[in-house]
Computed example of a mutant assay.
Amino acid sequence: MAGNFELYKDAAGKYRFRLKASNGQVIATGEAYESKASALKGIESVRKNAGDAALEDQTA
């Protein structure tokens, strides 16, 4: 089973999303958005760009 995005409103009334793995663990969170449409665009951006994203190791 694939993970899923959850879209919700925070305590300040802003829209946010989180990406959960199939085991229910949160693996990514989005910033606060003023509108639902903007949050949905954020989700689409993650879907579109994350698959081919390079790893930038900043630990060294």
Rank of each mutant, 00 (worst) to 15 (best):
D10A: 06
A12E: 11
K48S: 13
G24V: 06
E34R: 15
M1W: 10
A53F: 04
L19A: 08
Y33A: 13
A37F: 07
Q58L: 13
N49Y: 09
F17V: 00
A53H: 09
T29E: 15
G30L: 01
R16E: 02
E31W: 03
A21D: 10
Q25A: 14
V46R: 04
K36W: 01
T59P: 00
S35E: 10
V26L: 05
I27L: 11
A21Q: 05
A12G: 14
R18Q: 10
N23H: 11
E34T: 13
R16T: 02
E6C: 03
I27A: 08
K41R: 14
K14T: 04
A21M: 02
K20R: 14
L19E: 02
K9E: 10
Q25C: 03
R47W: 00
E31S: 15
A37Y: 03
I43E: 00
G13M: 05
D57V: 13
Q58T: 06
D57C: 04
R47A: 13
Y15T: 01
Q25N: 08
Y8R: 05
A50T: 02
V46P: 01
A54P: 12
A28I: 01
S22K: 10
S35L: 05
K41Q: 14
Q58C: 09
D10L: 05
N4M: 11
A12Y: 02
S35R: 15
R18L: 05
G3R: 05
A2L: 09
D52N: 12
G24C: 08
E34C: 04
N4D: 08
G13D: 07
K14G: 08
A54M: 10
K20Q: 01
G30A: 07
Q58R: 14
D10P: 07
V46W: 01
Q25L: 12
A37R: 12
A32E: 09
A54I: 06
D57R: 15
M1E: 12
L7M: 09
D52E: 11
G13C: 07
K48P: 04
Y33E: 07
A21C: 03
E56M: 04
G24A: 08
A54V: 13
G51H: 06
G3E: 03
G24H: 10
S38E: 15
G3P: 03
A28F: 08
S22V: 02
I43V: 15
L19M: 07
A2M: 12
G51R: 09
E6Q: 13
V26P: 04
A28W: 04
F17P: 01
G3Q: 03
T59M: 08
K48H: 08
A50G: 01
G42H: 06
L55P: 00
Q25F: 06
A53T: 11
G3F: 08
A21G: 03
A54T: 10
A37T: 13
K20T: 00
N4L: 11
L7E: 03
I43F: 00
M1T: 11
A37C: 03
L55E: 13
D52V: 08
K41F: 04
K48G: 04
R18F: 00
A60P: 09
A39K: 10
